[in-house]
Design a protein around this nucleic acid. Structure first.
Lengths: 282, 282
DNA sequence: ATGCCTTACGTTATACGTAATTATT
DNA sequence: AATAATTACGTATAACGTAAGGCAT
């Protein structure tokens, strides 16, 4: 049987052109290289090199052997990375969501139910989420549209309602409820990553947005500003509201999102406790 | 990098079910096996086995690894056999022929022109010969039909004429020439391997044949028998004819074969001297 | 002389075997 | 008790590095 180090060295020679260059790439000495190539020839029983001047070049057989070597090494590489990736994905739950809101509280619940697994989250658009759920990139995803794919199972996992966060001095701060159109032409502070809410914000005519990266720094900016902004019932529960501001509910139907937690049908049993917890909660 | 012996041992474990059985198959000890599997797990960084009772069984990752191992080992096997076969085929000239006649003298001429190469010969049907010429099984083949494939080049290499070998007492022994039909209903001694001549012999109505394996033993049987048999100009040149017999030419056109020596176009230059020798001779 | 490969020799790493131990049936 | 795997230890194979030699350009 031909050991891998021989194929590795052959591959290096094929790529580098000389034994010396190859030996330097692999951080071994020329004699080692020389011996290895001779050993390969012995094992196969066919000469793989021809002497051309003072250098050694692969002959037809050597080139064939080098091609095989490359493929075999690639195959080994693929083997270890695939197994490592697979094992990693089984130790972690990657939860994708079409909006940040559901990721405020759900990950910690997941974490308490599956303490031996790492929970990671990502916000992306629904189409990508669904595709990568099927591709096993995600273990679970949260959407606002129930997918009608029979290989995917769906459970309700809460909702989110959008409010204007207005300084107390704002002309509409005293209202019970307002509509998007009431804020026509105003400028808003908002988070840059809001997922599906992006489409909703566009419902305000002639609005302008100043987007701030993460929610933490957004809150700092909002605190020291009199610009209108947005909050939801979920952000309120998590962070509360500045004393200087009022949260005015938005009455348009688009201001309410209903979330669905989806996983592959085959995984439904695996996450049974999770879905039971969702049932109780919502 | 993962050395081949580890993959070999993993493959054996996957096939045998236990480390013990696998170690026996490979003629090594259990501890060696045990260490190797642990080493594999260390290198990949993922556990490949689960303890079930007092035995070790592959888990999902282990099975994936074993699949890769099998493929990689197969690939290595393929590499060495392919290179060996290729090298062997370049050291030998495998000459196929649709009839034994051309193989009486041509191989020794080939051998004198290419003294460093081994000459092997085979008699097979034209269709198989042509297919395996393209598949590089044969370096050259001899046919009775000029193939019209443009990737194949063709040179005449002689002809062969069939005679009846008749005991002097035979009713037709004195004839200048006879036809197949003149021998209607007779029984013949003949060689079992005659290639394309097989079809010709069937032209004699109601004939019966007693076939003898090799030409040597056929000649022995013929010598001590009064049954009609066959010879050709080529066998006559090689072996002569028994004193007790006469060779009567067969006048049917099917009794004459014209031979063509074919090789792949790409090899024509390689065998130039050979084809020049054929030109001079025929 | 210089660049590249090979040979010879001593060292080290490591895969292996033996023997004893643990764990499960 | 029997079967299977593991641990501990010593051994031997063989891959490697160093140093010297060969053979081209």
């Amino acid at each position: 049987m031909i050991e891998t180090y021989l194929l590795e060295q052959l591959d290096a020679v094929a790529r580098c052109g000389t034994l010396l260059a190859a030996s330097e790439e692999l951080h071994i000495t020329q004699p080692s290289m020389s011996r290895a190539m001779k050993k390969l020839e012995d094992l196969i029983g066919v000469e793989l090199f021809e002497h051309r001047g003072n250098r050694l070049v692969l002959n037809d057989y050597g080139r064939i052997a080098a091609d095989y070597a490359r493929r075999i090494l690639d195959s080994q590489e693929e083997m270890v990375t695939r197994i490592r990736m697979l094992e990693r994905s089984r130790r972690t739950i990657l939860l994708g969501s079409c909006a940040p809101g559901p990721l405020f509280e759900l990950p910690s619940i997941l974490s308490s139910l599956y303490p031996d697994r790492t929970i990671s989250t990502e916000v992306r658009d629904e189409e990508s989420l669904l595709k990568d759920l099927e591709q096993r990139v995600y273990q679970m995803i949260i959407l606002i549209h129930k997918p009608d794919d029979p290989t995917i199972c769906t459970h309700p996992c809460g909702s989110e309602h959008l409010y204007f966060s207005l300084p107390k001095e704002h002309r509409l701060a005293g209202e019970k409820a307002v509509r998007f159109s009431d804020m026509d032409g105003e400028s808003f502070l908002m988070a840059s990553e809001v997922g599906v809410w992006d489409a909703v914000h566009r419902l305000i005519p002639n609005a302008r947005y100043l987007r701030q990266g993460d929610i933490g720094s957004l809150r700092e900016v909002v605190r020291s500003s009199t610009m209108p902004s947005f909050v939801t019932d979920l952000t309120l529960r998590l962070y509360g509201l500045d004393d200087s501001r009022t949260a005015v509910p938005i009455s348009d139907p688009e201001a309410r999102m209903t979330y669905w937690c989806c996983c592959r049908k085959e995984d439904e049993k695996r996450y049974l406790r999770w879905f039971q917890a969702l049932e109780r909660r919502y």
